[in-house]
Amino acid sequence: MVDLTQLHDAILRGDAKKAVAVTREALAENASPTELVSKHMIPAMDEVGRRFECQEYFVPELLLSARAMKGALELIRPLLVEQGVASAGRVIIGTVKGDLHDIGKNLVASMLEGAGFEVIDLGTDVAPGKIVTEILERKPNIVALSALLTTTMPFMKSTIEELRKAGVREQVKVMVGGAPVTQQYAEQIGADGYSDNANGAVAIARKLVSG
């Protein structure tokens, strides 16, 4: 039997090859996909998050751990779908109109995937109308918006207004983030959640889907 602490450690160390290899071996030995995720992988990502909060880990470590997690999840996800296991929630994420910056957005997307969310990444420079269309088609629980510039932040507000006009605002929770964005601004534009870092974004997303 493969030692599953190796899966936990590979994700914690950001070793994607090892994480994938151990997962493959475990699945071949008929390990339970849900147990792999809930007992080994998500706890590893939670530990990554904790280390980030304590400043033992920084952005590169987050990215590498999320990549290892993603690699392992790709093997497991089809099995979860087969078994009808629900994700932690569905998130539509994108950088707002006019803004092509995506490092923070990608990091949040990876961390959310690592926490078991289904993430639909709309990329950058996403017009408010596109988000409305995606909400209608994909029925997400959460819309996550990113902006790096104070010049593009106002598009967060106009996106929320567009959701309201289209009558879909109440169907989703909206969370916002990005270097210049603040809790105060999030409240000012009527967003439901804000975090100043990718790990915090996971906690907010969990709270939004459970509340």
């Binding site: 590169p60 990215l63 590498l64 990549r67 490092i103 990091l107």
Partner: peptide, 9 residues
């Protein structure tokens, strides 16, 4: 890992 981080960050 460096190649991945370079592309991402």
């Amino acid at each position: 890992n460096a190649r991945y981080l370079w592309d991402e960050m």
